[in-house]
Design a binder for these strands. Structure first.
Lengths: 237, 237
DNA sequence: TCTTGTTGTAATCGAATGATTACTTATCAG
DNA sequence: CTGATAAGTAATCATTCGATTACAACAAGA
């Protein structure tokens, strides 16, 4: 028997919905990434307890048993997705800091609010805030972290969430050089942003003037980006 | 047959573990409150999807079917608990505002940070922050709200969470008189506090100097209260 | 070509969970 | 006292979900 199209049985229609024809084989390492990416989106949307391994599998275009076998347990999958999101956030901040210190951000510097001061920490704070808002686009990174933050009751997740949060605080304080109060305020703004995203406030942006004011006041220049990302997300689901 | 101790059957031992002897009957309205209180604690700890109606029932000292029958569905129960928490937060803020405007807070006024200004909005902001931190003691009110904020994907919960959050914003802006930016900062500090509670940072207060610094910096005078509440919570579970 | 390891799935299992049903038993008005 | 109503539970059902097992197909090297 030849090796063409393993699943096509009766009719000539190529499978049910998705065009999966020959079911391409993908090396495990690459498949891992794809699953983690899918898992990030699912967990970000529905939380740890609210997500199923089957939803992740579907989102990754793969069978549920494979997801479980590759990661062992749903918890292990969540933890890996969490580490990945955590790493991406740290990287984003470190990129900003490195670029700033290399003098590569001359263009953006002019757009910053001079009222907040132009010493390194104050400027980095604003630049990192921009980088943070940019991450909203990156499907669920921020909400993945947020979901971990409220899953503190799960021992393994809670421990990782605590460590991760402190990592971020230390980065902002030590690498960007913000004093504790400024670092705290920076994190607070981030948590507010996460919350606004979590309750899907951008969804009612046009229908509620209070929502409009709060979003504009919180996101400033990044609002259009976030609105677009929210819209895209809505259609995807 | 007399009406003494309905459940005691064979031995003279009074039931299994809990001393439930005669199983007191409680009017529905009062039972409702007890269940809502229990539900708030459970939902606050484990989130909507992560909680079971049986956990709520156990926490309320009642059977699972009764919980379901009284509220219809788990979702309806969550929504009622959410409304209750939301109402308590609004009340707490309004109490502060009313007391301030009635001149009943002369004592506390002296303890405020004069650097933040002594106009009404600035002082109210500080007083409300204290009231907010006080709510940590009130078993799960704040985390109940937080759990609703990250459950935005559930249509009914998301809608209520959006409206509730905007209510709070409007209260802070219109009734306390904070300008949008100050109201935003106030909410942001609140979301940071919720997050620190969510990841149970107080649990590692003694073991991590970064956690210590961040908690002290965020909670200030209210830290001892929160630490005590966290400790109590840990033992309760 | 054979064979061996990798990629992947179908089938299914057991536990958990929200909900329903049918049934008790206390309480209270008359 | 006596119904009648309200308060409450035991038993159970249908799903859902994470996990396991057994198996299929493909690729690559010998």
């Amino acid at each position: 028997m030849s090796s063409v199209a393993k699943k096509i049985v009766g009719t000539d229609a190529p499978e049910s919905p998705a065009i999966q024809a020959t079911a391409e084989r993908i090396p495990a390492a690459r498949r891992r990434e794809l699953i983690l990416e899918a898992a990030t989106g699912v967990f970000a949307e529905r939380g740890y307890a609210g997500s199923t391994t089957d939803q992740v599998a579907k989102a990754a275009g793969i069978s549920q048993p494979y997801v479980v076998r590759m990661f062992g347990t749903k918890e292990a999958l969540f933890l890996e997705a969490l580490d990945r999101a955590h790493g991406k956030l740290l990287s984003a901040f470190r990129s900003v800091i490195a670029a700033y210190d290399a003098g590569e951000l001359a263009e953006q510097l002019g757009q910053l609010d001079p009222d907040q001061g132009n010493a390194r920490p104050q400027q980095l704070k604003q630049l990192m805030a921009i980088a943070y808002a940019d991450l909203v686009e990156d499907r669920g990174i921020l909400m993945m972290l947020m979901q971990a933050f409220v899953a503190g009751h799960e021992p393994a997740i809670g421990a990782r969430a605590r460590e991760g949060f402190l990592d971020i605080y230390r980065l902002v304080r030590d690498e960007a050089g913000l004093p504790p109060e400024a670092a705290r305020d920076f994190l607070a703004q981030g948590m507010l942003m996460n919350t606004l995203i979590g309750i899907r406030l951008p969804d009612i942006y046009q229908q509620d003037s209070t929502a409009e004011e709060l979003l504009e006041c919180t996101l400033r220049a990044k609002l259009p980006l976030v609105l677009k990302a929210s819209q895209a997300q809505r259609q995807a689901v």
